[in-house]
């Protein structure tokens, strides 16, 4: 498997496995690694087996919780009689796709039509999901310029819903017809309530999430999602790769999907035919590769911090028009620019 650099399991000594697990934990990917490589069956030393088992138990809990949470969301929104579109992790779990395996996440992303947004938000509030306290600036940023209402957290269960009315930022510099992707969504099998993006659009959405977001800590997971989705859909239909590129051109994500798949092919050996996608990644994509690579002290690439900074700037540039970009940066600078916010107490 190209993940292990083409080597078999026995090419790793126990210390190398420990380092791999440590890196994977850092990236939130230990359970994904365990599930995809079937690490519970390859005869690892006992200490490593226990870590594999523990990570799979945790991943199973996340999936169970997501499925249960979806039932609660359905109860809260069913009365509205509007279609509810599932995105990303929640969709993978509900559809039982390979991309759901070992995926650790708890936020649920859903989309409703813009005209139903206020009603949906009100129904979720009645169901117990509340918007956390935001300062007035963040509140306005979300409401006016973002494609979601502020995250809503359930007051008892602590679960979070991101309620969207579009797929990508409405102010984004690349013209993306995300409306078309939403309009052409299809019902989830056996459900009169949940909807999902078409196969092609699921991959496109995952790719745009990777290329427009500066959450590099999760970048490797996003690339892996793209890889698993692509492999799964391509194995079901031989014409999938062609349809994917055709669809990408239609909705304005041609460049985005090419770069995302070049990354996935370079890092994970995603089987994208060379005739459909010739060549190597561009400069910006190479920066992404550097940023999403191991962030572990022992193995991270040189200059990762620089790649991070360049990409954050690029992402902001792509997301927001100039006047908003300046206001946004000035506001964030006045708060102090920090990459992460660690917890205070233990």
């Amino acid at each position: 498997m190209s993940l292990l650099g083409g080597r078999g399991h026995d090419a790793f000594d126990p210390e190398a496995w420990s380092l791999l697990f440590s890196e994977a934990r850092r990236a939130g990917l230990l359970a994904r690694l365990a599930a995809i490589l079937r690490l519970d069956e390859v005869g690892l030393p006992e200490r490593l087996q226990k870590q594999v088992k523990a990570s799979l138990i945790e991943a199973a809990a996340f999936q169970r919780d997501v499925l249960r949470e979806l039932e609660h969301v359905q109860q809260a929104l069913q009365g509205l009689g509007v279609p509810v579109l599932l995105l990303k992790g929640a969709a993978y779990v509900r559809l039982n796709l390979p991309a759901a395996r070992g995926r650790i996440f708890s936020d649920i992303d859903i989309v409703v039509a813009k005209e139903s947004l206020a009603q949906a938000e009100a129904s979720l509030m009645l169901g117990g999901w509340l918007t956390g306290k935001l300062d007035p600036y963040d509140q306005r940023y979300y409401r006016e310029w973002s494609h979601e209402v502020p995250p809503m957290t359930h007051r008892r269960r602590g679960t979070t819903i991101d309620l969207h009315h579009a797929l990508v930022m409405p102010t984004c510099r690349i013209r993306v017809d995300s409306g078309k992707m939403i309009r052409e969504a299809v019902p989830v099998d056996g459900s009169a309530f949940w909807w999902r993006l078409q196969d092609e659009d699921m991959v496109l959405h995952a790719a745009s999430h990777l290329m427009f977001n500066s959450e590099f800590e999760r970048g490797l997971r996003d690339i892996w999602d793209i890889d698993l989705l692509f492999r799964d859909f391509a194995s079901r239909s031989a014409s999938f790769p062609e349809r994917l590129f055709e669809r990408a051109r239609e909705v304005g994500l041609g460049e985005v999907i090419r770069e995302a798949l070049r990354l996935a092919r370079a890092l994970l050996g995603t089987p994208v035919p060379e005739n459909l996608l010739p060549g190597d990644a561009k400069m910006a994509t190479r920066l992404v590769a550097r940023a999403v690579y191991s962030r572990h002290r022992q193995t991270r690439p040189a200059g990762q911090w620089l790649a991070d900074m360049l990409l954050v700037s690029r992402e902001m540039y792509l997301r927001l028009p100039n006047h908003l970009l300046l206001t946004h940066l000035a506001h964030k600078a006045s708060l102090g620019f920090t990459g992460t916010t660690p917890h205070k107490a233990i």
């Binding site: 890196e23 934990r25 002290r297 991270r300 660690p342 233990i346």
Partner: peptide, 10 residues
């Protein structure tokens, strides 16, 4: 306190 190279606490 670094855990797998990450710093979960202040």
């Amino acid at each position: 306190f670094e855990f797998s190279g990450d710093t979960p606490f202040l």
